[in-house]
Amino acid sequence: MLEDQKMISALIRLMMPIFQEGFFIESRLGANVKDILCSELGVTPEFVDCRIATVFIDGKAVDNIETARLSDGCILTLSGAMPGLVGACMRKSGQYASLRSGISYTPPLEESAEKRGLVKVKIFNTMIQELGPKLLKQGVLVNKKQLGKLLDETSKLDTGRNVMDQMMQVPLNSELTKICFTFNSSTCQAQ
């Protein structure tokens, strides 16, 4: 078995396309985004406040994650702080939010009842390093096409056998499979 840290780096690289394109999680709906990030991804409120600087729901930039709500089938995107004026104006509640007011997220007027549903999650840049290990361990849902590509890429690696030894696949339905990895990491930063 490879050392954990090396294995995590290799897995992060392998999963990078999926993290960027988006994987799926089964999630509570109706609650606010901050609550959901804490309860479903297991991160602390401090991490959400300090490290997740940029949030999109369905491509709309979110300013207040305590009023934003996820709906079934929506896309939630998480990013660190971005450079440039345009990067800065995408930040939640940033000084320059007005510059992109045309694509700002507006929370729904009516609160929806709490239920569970499927959410597509994309993570970019520092979020890949900081949330990636935790997600690999707790597992994410990938579709058939993504799983096929992942297995194909894994088979090309020198360490492909090690990766496969540590990968668990649990089909959820004909389209989605939960994949997770076993390693003894204590390095998940998003605690």
């Binding site: 491509g59 702080a81 450079p83 990067g87 995408m90 970019f124 520092t126 390093q129």
Partner: peptide, 22 residues
């Protein structure tokens, strides 16, 4: 976090995903 982390790790091209998402 930008000048000390994000830019060094990924360069300015870190913006591609975010602008695309937006």
């Amino acid at each position: 976090p930008v000048t000390g982390e994000g830019l060094a790790a990924y360069g300015t091209n870190v913006l591609t995903n975010v602008l695309n998402e937006a």
